[in-house]
Amino acid sequence: MFIVEETIAGPEAAQIPKQRGESLLDTAVRYAEERHWDVFPGTWLEAVDGTQRCSCGDGRCSAPGAHPAREDWAAQVTGSVTVARRMWSKQPTASILLPTGRTFDAIDVPESAGFLALARMERMELTLGPVTCTPDRRMHFFVLPGAAAKVPDLVRKLGWTPASLDLVALGEGSYVAAPPTRFGSRGSVQWARRPTPANRWLPDVEELISPLAYACGRDR
């Protein structure tokens, strides 16, 4: 079970669990072993003249320490505990990235809309999967694979055009950064809803799209 040692109050009375005291290597291994999630190592942070810089070398990197380190990153993806342990042993500070379109897709929304949607989902007693909150103020809702293909039509049926909402479905060919990956000096990715035995079975995007679209519409 994932251990939470501290919580941070968030909007709409939500609590964001914050992981502490565990290495990136151990966490990556547990994602593969306990959740059967595929993982791959990304970039990492390096101290340059007293400043944390991304290992990619780009001084203007938009996600320092939290993006793929190679163009062929898909070739690194693994669900093997042994392989994951070996990769992070080589680079212990590498970010933990999870490919979407495999064991889950992710619905990417602004943090403000995400917390609003979470509050509404709880009132509706909807089943939720894990949800992350990133330092660049985005939230990712984990749902069953296939969501990326469904979302545009689902949004249209609700009366919105896909381009009008800041709501993106991440599927095959995309990825999300997993806790406790750090984004430069902005902080680390955290769980808004941590993985537990109770949410091992993910919801279909059709169950969540209405509150998410509504929240994004209000957030415009």
Rank of each mutant, 00 (worst) to 15 (best):
E111Q: 09
S185A: 15
A163D: 13
S62L: 11
P180N: 11
R35V: 15
V4A: 04
L45V: 12
V83D: 07
S185Y: 13
A192D: 02
G21Y: 08
L212E: 14
E125V: 08
T132G: 01
A148Y: 07
W88C: 01
V155C: 03
Q190M: 02
L212F: 08
C61Y: 10
D166Q: 01
I3L: 03
C216H: 15
K157A: 02
P145D: 07
E6F: 02
S95N: 10
Q19N: 11
F142I: 04
L25C: 06
V168D: 03
P211R: 03
P203S: 05
A148I: 01
G159S: 03
L116A: 07
Q76T: 11
I16T: 02
L116Q: 15
V39Y: 15
A13E: 15
F141L: 05
V4M: 09
N199L: 09
K150L: 05
I96D: 13
T127M: 10
P17S: 09
D136M: 07
I8Y: 00
T82H: 06
A149R: 06
V81W: 02
P92Q: 01
P110V: 15
L212T: 09
T7G: 08
P99M: 10
A74I: 06
L144P: 01
G57E: 00
Q19L: 15
K157L: 01
F115K: 08
A69E: 14
G57H: 07
R156L: 09
G65Q: 07
L25M: 14
W191K: 00
S23K: 05
A192S: 06
C61A: 13
V155M: 03
W160V: 11
W191D: 02
V155D: 11
A94P: 06
A75G: 10
T134C: 03
P68Q: 06
P145F: 06
T161L: 10
Q76D: 04
A63Y: 15
C216K: 15
P11R: 01
A84V: 13
G79L: 11
E33Y: 13
F115H: 08
H67P: 00
A177T: 15
T82S: 08
R220L: 05
Q76M: 14
K90R: 06
T161R: 06
V131W: 05
S185P: 09
E71G: 12
Q91I: 15
L98F: 03
K90M: 04
Y175I: 02
I209T: 00
V151Q: 06
C133N: 10
E22K: 00
Q19V: 05
D166K: 03
D49F: 06
S55D: 05
G146F: 09
Q19A: 14
K157Y: 00
Q91A: 10
A148Q: 07
G173F: 05
T181N: 04
S80F: 12
R186V: 04
P68A: 00
A28G: 06
A28W: 11
G101S: 12
A213S: 08
A63F: 07
T100I: 05
A63G: 10
T134F: 09
G10D: 01
S95D: 13
W201V: 01
A28S: 08
A63H: 13
I3G: 07
A177Q: 14
R102H: 10
P179H: 14
F2V: 04
V155G: 11
T103C: 11
R85D: 02
P92T: 00
L167V: 08
T43N: 15
T181W: 06
G184D: 09
A106W: 08
